[in-house]
Design a binder for these strands. Sequence first.
DNA 1: CTGCTAATGGAAACCGTTGTCAGATTCACC
DNA 2: GGTGAATCTGACAACGGTTTCCATTAGCAG
Lengths: 340, 340
Amino acid sequence: MSNAYNRPDQLSPELRRRVLETARRLGYPGPDPVARSLRTRKAGAVGLLLTENLSYAFRDPAAVGVLEGLALACEDASVGLHLVPASPGREDVAAVHRAGVDGFVVYSVPDDDPHLAAVLERPVPTVIIDQPSIEGIDRVGPDDAAAVGKIAEHLVGLGHRQVGVICMRLARERNDDFVSTARQSGAHFHVQRTRLEALAVAFSAAGVDWAGVPVVERFDHTVDDGASAARQLLDAYPQITAVICTSDILALGAMAEAERRGLRVPQDLTVTGFDGIAEAERIGLTTVHQPVLEKGKAAGRLLLGSAERSAPKVITLPTELRVGRTSAPPRTIDEPWFGG
Amino acid sequence: MSNAYNRPDQLSPELRRRVLETARRLGYPGPDPVARSLRTRKAGAVGLLLTENLSYAFRDPAAVGVLEGLALACEDASVGLHLVPASPGREDVAAVHRAGVDGFVVYSVPDDDPHLAAVLERPVPTVIIDQPSIEGIDRVGPDDAAAVGKIAEHLVGLGHRQVGVICMRLARERNDDFVSTARQSGAHFHVQRTRLEALAVAFSAAGVDWAGVPVVERFDHTVDDGASAARQLLDAYPQITAVICTSDILALGAMAEAERRGLRVPQDLTVTGFDGIAEAERIGLTTVHQPVLEKGKAAGRLLLGSAERSAPKVITLPTELRVGRTSAPPRTIDEPWFGG
DNA sequence: CTGCTAATGGAAACCGTTGTCAGATTCACC
DNA sequence: GGTGAATCTGACAACGGTTTCCATTAGCAG
């Protein structure tokens, strides 16, 4: 029976025909995938753990790019991609245990996330993206520190010393407000923490007191949140000449807020982003581009190309500073844009 | 044993603790999800069939919105979402057979797609989105004809009679060129066919000879393709006063091409889109908004809320014309924008 | 006609879990 | 001490495939 479906060459065409014909007549829908998986010990799918509110991921073109790359790698290998339902609220680790997959990709979850711990307990290969290194686990990610360094260098070179920062959530608890340096260095989201640290290093090196640099955090990751963050930032620190955003989405919001205030970008205010999403390129945002598609693809290939199980691999992706039309030297003191 | 993991209440806490402790000591990784699925006859996942090149889906915010909505519905039900690897080239229907899922959602595939046929043969519930109706199968989708009617009405009302259309792929074979009316009505992508038909009806009613309206098709769905399509369209038909695009992405490209030509939108050229994606709203594109998130959610709920298996359900979603800053009355003949 | 080999069909074991059921043990209470 | 309930143990049969292995048969040569 099994042979009739899977190995047409092992039995006579006549028998095969007869078997299939009978099967169809009896309403047999073909071999059950689950039973097959059990026997062959191959689920034919890889799990993707995104933990955070799914909207978070789907609203960010950078995250979608990673997803796309991963999906492409899976498609190449004829393997399904199983999105694990990991609600942020309830710690529903069971979903991780219930997922019938041959491996996991973990992307952009807080480093203290219980789902991540649950994944690591499963006896299947795992690849992490944009996460802090874990002993013995494959990892893919850009060199965030270097990438942010390029932005900082660019801004310092232009002459900016009074800057403000808008960043994504730093921990699982909401804090739509300014961020203390303690919270910055204790952030549970690896990428955000790394980027803030790199900014601190770069600006400190340029003689800027980092403790005096305002950093605004937003829990949700939307253009509107970027705008409200920029408002909060500029209301409190009008002397700022450059707004550094840790994502392009937030930068788009900052641009919108600048326009609302009648600030010209880049003459009155410099805005920078991070990721290099398509829309950013379309409007000429100064940003650091990272190859998000490749990031997902690399993770998928790492997981699926299981041949060389020699040592845990680490893939570091290149980044590129893209200077656009939203960065310029700071406005001079002679022509202040605000009254007085 | 099973009880220790699955029914903590059936045995004493002490025993449970002891069992789990022993299991851990022996390196038992917890119940195998696949075996459990076989036994319980629940895979804990729904399959999503997208067939076409995955990039196609991930590059389109409207499709991503559907995906997000579906993922949210799955998350609510603590069910995984399994993306079926359906390569467009090779007819790898096996992937459909191999997917261990409790149901399928089929979205935006050509109506003659073999993967779709394979899904329908599987003995699991199925919901189709943006597909032509199938006897006995749940269906979710907007009223495309009515939605397009609103756009057409708007343009006719403004006075446009010389229009051109840019649409997405109409069949599985590539055709980056003008489209005959035969190919229009024979299109295998339901949504595109419906929209073109609705445009034909509306403009014919306004006294426009539809056979004379140029329609340009693009196989890939990117902003650049929208731009090149607009170029092809305007090169051949410079008298056109309005470009109707069947998606916002294509419309963004048309806008870019208009700018490249020095055409002012909307004074010199009207451009309209379809879908109502965020970026379109940001730039004020005239378009028809459809609730893509709800579309995905509705499909997921239909599939998962299996209680009322009475009759096949059809959910029609509302659409809304959003007049932006890209549509205006046609330029007058007195002041032609092109030389002469 | 007999004996050997190759091809082929069918039976049985196995994958790891869950559910059931019978029997054993414990414990409380009369 | 007896009785019943509660709890625990162990065995076993599915679930529906795949894989291995064995028996049967056909084909062919001697």
